[in-house]
Design a protein around this nucleic acid. Sequence first.
DNA 1: CATGGCGATTACATCGTTGTAAATGGGTCG
DNA 2: CGACCCATTTACAACGATGTAATCGCCATG
Lengths: 337, 337
Amino acid sequence: MAARPRIKDVAEYAGVSPKTVSNVINNFEHVSERTRAAVQEAIDALGYRVNIAGRQLRQGRTGMITLAVPELDVAYFAELAKHVMAEADARGRTVLIHQTGAVRERELAALHGFDAQFSDGLILSPLALRPRDLATRDRRLPVVLLGERPAEGGTDHVGIDNVAAAREATEHLLSRGRRRIAVIGGAVRGRQGTDRLRTDGYREAMETAGLPFEPDLVVPVDAYHWRDGARAAAALMERDPRPDALLCLNDHLALGALRALHDLGRSVPGDLDVIGFDDIEASRFSVPSLTTVAPDKQQIARAAVDLLLERIEAPDAVELRDQVVGHRVIVRESTGG
Amino acid sequence: MAARPRIKDVAEYAGVSPKTVSNVINNFEHVSERTRAAVQEAIDALGYRVNIAGRQLRQGRTGMITLAVPELDVAYFAELAKHVMAEADARGRTVLIHQTGAVRERELAALHGFDAQFSDGLILSPLALRPRDLATRDRRLPVVLLGERPAEGGTDHVGIDNVAAAREATEHLLSRGRRRIAVIGGAVRGRQGTDRLRTDGYREAMETAGLPFEPDLVVPVDAYHWRDGARAAAALMERDPRPDALLCLNDHLALGALRALHDLGRSVPGDLDVIGFDDIEASRFSVPSLTTVAPDKQQIARAAVDLLLERIEAPDAVELRDQVVGHRVIVRESTGG
DNA sequence: CATGGCGATTACATCGTTGTAAATGGGTCG
DNA sequence: CGACCCATTTACAACGATGTAATCGCCATG
């Protein structure tokens, strides 16, 4: 089995110097047509591909970017990953996907470039990072944060307006006459994570409507999976009086809740409304289909890739950006749609 | 911001040669305790991390492996990815995930190491590869195939017994008195892909039961998503006589079918049974919950990682392995469970 | 015909790491 | 006391690519 050809082999085959081959590969302008053709022919004949390790060693670039998400089996992240790959692809970059498991150490590892050494930059969707972690991050790795807004500035960010999104979702429930609205996956206090921001938006809507904000109706969860939603919904149905609507902070929680309500003989949207966040594909096909707050995933992906590539091109551009992407409430059967 | 420290900086700080630092990093045995401690201290003080590009250039290894799957938003692959990461992690390897989009060119690119240059090996779940593609693959990249069994040998493989799995699923439906069983996502002819093998298993079960194999009941789909299942199920309900069971070749198809049947006012399992493949988390929470053939994902992941690492250690071990992993039918509400 | 200019090409060094082979130095044994 | 052994450490080169700066060769100009 022949060894993988090197640039030197191509050079010998084409009768030029290695550097000339490099010039052809990198589209250097001062290369004669004849030479370019000869080198290209050699490349094709030998099946040459650049060795990215060698290139990175020399010029520090790989053309790859890393996307680090908490869990791929949360459909939102899987769908987002697909969009990010598409956008990156359109710009000639390759995406490596990494899972942090929502573990702070692993998010840190990504941030410090340990898991992203081959990457020119990182798109990170953090869940467990602390504000200080960001302040001490290694500035040499261009980073764009998704979702969770960084408490400390210093890092580009892309996300939806979580407060407004939750407010609108709550207003939708209120407009349907719901009054006792529980929040599954919410957080009343603590750092300004997604859960806290969405709970704040819910609270705003409630208070604007002249309704009391009852912290008891905000139920935290361990994780954002079906089972957690099912468990929380079942527990809420034990309450007296019972909630007449569930604002679930992602679709998995909402879908789990739907199942639990079905088991308890509660009709959705007859007895109560359920609404989720993310608009994953499953939500269009559940019974009942799920009303949800849909972030514009494609725009998130595009903005993230764009910001990152710009940051890679000009790492020292001081101007920091916080790009707010659109969202909308998609009304389906679970709220009578 | 100081530049990233190199091995040379650590060496100077510790007062030893670069090679000694390398020896410490790589746990070379003939290093005195004193020296080791001094070097370790320097590493900690400077925050040194090895540069993988440099290492790969020199020794050709990175400690990373690539997992390439068709689509991450197919939950089975997302769940599998999670298991593979866990197994690799336990063995001190890092996993890079890659999406091929089920496009042959991209599966080929992975196979030829273009997308996996930084990896010591590749776990590939192919969908679109042709037999010949495997025969001509670059032997220098260790590869383990998942799912689709390679028609041409020459590549290690891990998967379930698809024929047996489909047979058992069909037998389960037959045992419940179902007779007109349709296959959504199946293939009557063509290469021995997963769809074809499962259809063969279905056929075996039907014929063993003395029932006719009707090719018309095998419905191909464009992709294995909810919408395709919904569309196929709706079309099948137009048939006369109507099928009394749907064998869907993955859970997404089955869940989409459930929704379509609900829309048509058909009761599952009252009017007909539905069964899927993969046992994704959604299937435990759908209404009705979904009977499904559950492959042992963890064992698949473990076997794949083990085989790959062995192949990386000893690329020339001739013995090829085809590891068959267990599966079982999990009976839930959609077949009366 | 000498000179200058410029496009095309090349020699060389270097990115960070580690394999090879050689050097160092302390201790043992005859 | 000298020779040798072996654990430890080191010098050097090389992995593959490309930036820098120098060189080459051709043509226009005076």
